[in-house]
């Protein structure tokens, strides 16, 4: 016993101080998901259902998608990448909104974590890292399903994985910024109010050129639209400078959201 409580042995604090503790935050989540990994498997089913209903069901009526450069693209092949992007988005954002709100307001998890050398920035960064990993993991699971459905033809589809990580980063950071404004569970309705229309209209189910130009501009500003672009292009076998704009956009939005989240969390947790 005296070995534990006896004379102080320096606890190598420097290591924790360097990373701000982001890595330990990821470890904490991994430890918790060892108990609840089944939830992640369940999350793959939602996009699979959409793919069956829209891609296979409605796809049977639609046939090929008109208006694309490659006129041979079947409807299911067009919808699947959009669902991959949506999966990465939801996987990451659910973590930094629902789960984080619980830790922030209900369990007061961070109060005890911040009595250690961990910093608010380290905690925030760690949660975002875990959220984007989680989003990418579910996306890879869904990608396997998409492959099984026979909707993958190009090895470029592997670019979906880094794409999902970037999409996850942007939406994890956005979620983290948004969650600092929520007062109670009712406020989650506002998130739904933004997410559902975005999911329906950000070229998930049809190409951008169905809209008149002014509406196109509006849709191009949506983060999910840029996410879908980032993942749909390589999925359909395109790889070029067209990926630069979505990538830059997602990095910028995610970076700004993260800065805002840092400031808001610091005020909330260190008053």
């Amino acid at each position: 016993m005296s070995a534990v409580l006896g004379p102080h042995v320096s606890a190598r604090p420097e290591l924790a101080l360097r990373s701000g503790g982001a890595l330990a935050m990821v470890e904490r989540n991994l430890m918790i998901y060892r108990h609840t990994w089944l939830l992640l498997v369940a999350e793959i089913f939602e996009p699979v259902l959409y793919l069956l209903a829209f891609g296979v069901g409605i796809g049977g009526l639609v046939g090929n998608v008109p208006g694309l450069a490659d006129t041979d693209v079947r409807y299911a092949e067009f919808v699947a990448p959009a669902l991959l992007a949506t999966t990465a988005m939801n996987g990451a954002m659910n973590e930094t909104t629902f789960n984080l709100f619980n830790k922030l307001k209900t369990n007061h998890t961070y109060e005890s974590i911040l009595t250690t050398p961990m910093t608010v920035r380290g905690v925030a960064l760690g949660e975002v890292c875990w959220a984007l990993l989680r989003g990418a993991l579910v996306t890879v699971g869904f990608l396997v399903a998409v492959t099984v459905f026979g909707l993958v033809h190009s090895p470029l589809v592997l670019l979906v994985i880094p794409g999902a990580l970037l999409v996850g980063f942007t939406f994890a950071a956005l979620g983290l910024a948004v969650v600092t404004y929520l007062r109670d569970w009712q406020d989650f309705q506002y998130i739904q109010l933004a997410m559902l229309p975005m999911f329906l209209f950000a070229t998930t189910f049809y190409p951008l050129d169905v809209y008149p130009r002014p509406v196109q501009l509006l849709v191009e500003c949506l983060p999910l639209y840029q996410s879908i672009e980032l993942i749909r292009q390589p999925s359909l076998g395109e790889f070029g400078v067209g990926l630069l704009l979505p990538a830059a956009y997602l990095l910028a939005v995610g970076g700004l959201a993260l800065m805002l989240a840092f400031r808001r969390l610091d005020r909330a947790l260190r008053s």
């Binding site: 420097e14 924790a16 330990a24 470890e27 918790i32 108990h35 005890s112």
Partner: peptide
């Protein structure tokens, strides 16, 4: 702290293991 903020999703031992990681 005044309120017990232990991790309810984890086991007793895991609570100690992860807390030690916060100290690096």
């Amino acid at each position: 702290p005044q309120d017990d903020t232990v991790d309810v999703e984890l086991t007793v031992r895991e609570n100690l293991l992860i807390y030690g990681r916060y100290f690096g």
